[in-house]
């Protein structure tokens, strides 16, 4: 067993373990942290494959972005002592069955697919090539999807701002708030 194998099994093992822990933990922030471990381990596997760019993207977008946002929303909404309610047995059985079916389907597809080496020479996935592919508008270029996604994200951002923007019931600095400080001080 080479070192690469050891590392692979370490990463794979941690992905599996933490995936299970993510869904079984009853404390929501712990789940988020387990998910972080899953995503970081995935990034580790990308690094092993020398696919550095994707690994770094995985870290920035998932670990640094999405997980932070998830944790942020947990921070705003829940308390340390809160625990998730255990689902009724009926739901548990149903979810287990659905998961098993999904896993079976995936494994079956894997087993039935004949993995044959590609005829075309392997393209090295360094930043240079990634960058070129991203902005090229030819057959293999990603310029159009890139732009479309930008617009989509922009739309999502505008939507999020509109949703998040509450009515200004509290005055900004300098003005007095709606709550009358004299009356409320008796509490």
């Amino acid at each position: 067993m080479t070192l690469n194998d050891i590392m692979f099994y370490l990463f794979a093992g941690s992905i599996l373990t933490f995936s299970v822990l993510t869904v079984t933990s009853r404390r929501i922030l712990r789940s988020a942290v387990y998910l972080l471990f899953v995503l970081v381990s995935t990034a580790g596997i990308y690094f092993m494959l020398n696919y550095n760019f994707l690994a770094a993207v995985q870290l920035t977008v998932y670990a640094g972005g999405i997980i932070v946002l998830i944790i942020f929303s947990i921070l705003l909404t829940s308390h340390v002592s809160e625990k998730a309610v255990v689902a009724p047995v009926r739901q548990q059985i149903f979810s287990a069955l659905a998961t098993a079916a999904g896993a079976a389907l995936t494994i079956l597809t894997f087993l039935q697919y004949a993995f044959t080496p590609s005829a075309s020479p392997a393209v090295e996935a360094n930043v240079h090539n990634v960058g070129l592919a991203l902005v090229s508008y030819g057959r293999d270029g990603f310029a159009l999807p890139f732009e479309v996604i930008s617009i989509l994200l922009l739309a999502a951002m505008v939507g999020a701002i509109v949703l998040a923007k509450k009515e200004k019931h509290l005055a900004t600095a300098g003005n007095q708030p709606k709550i009358n400080p004299d009356n409320s001080s008796k509490s």
Partner: peptide, 28 residues
Amino acid sequence: DFDIGIFYVTAVSSVGVIGILIAGWSSN
């Protein structure tokens, strides 16, 4: 010596904030 050296630094340093967030929340 990654070919994405600078990107890598920004990527991993973004993980550090999670520690701070968790520390703040879990201290109750």
